[in-house]
């Protein structure tokens, strides 16, 4: 899957903002912004791509990283942030 075109996460002074093509924007947390950046850089990505990134960045157990990645992707899909 890929991130939905026109959606973007911007960061400034420790704050992160998800912006949508229709002009709406939402504050998101640091993990969301980190995973978004990983997915954006990857282009095509899977839950495994995100799980690996969480594992290396935060040093948590692989199964916890996999759960986090899966939950994040579910959230993105629920809000149509992926294609």
């Amino acid at each position: 899957m890929t991130l939905r075109s026109g959606c973007n996460v911007v960061s400034m002074r420790g704050k992160h903002l998800l912006t949508l093509p229709d002009g709406r924007s939402f504050e998101v947390n640091e993990t969301f912004a980190f995973l978004w950046d990983v997915a954006a850089k990857a282009g095509e990505f899977t839950a495994e791509t995100l799980a690996d990134a969480i594992f290396y960045e935060y040093g948590i157990a692989p199964e916890v990283a996999a759960e986090e990645a899966s939950a994040t992707i579910s959230l993105w899909q629920e809000y149509s942030l992926t294609e």
């Binding site: 400034m12 704050k15 903002l17 924007s25």
Partner: peptide, 11 residues
Amino acid sequence: VILSLMADAER
């Protein structure tokens, strides 16, 4: 203020 400026800048 940060969030408002970020949203403006992105627009």
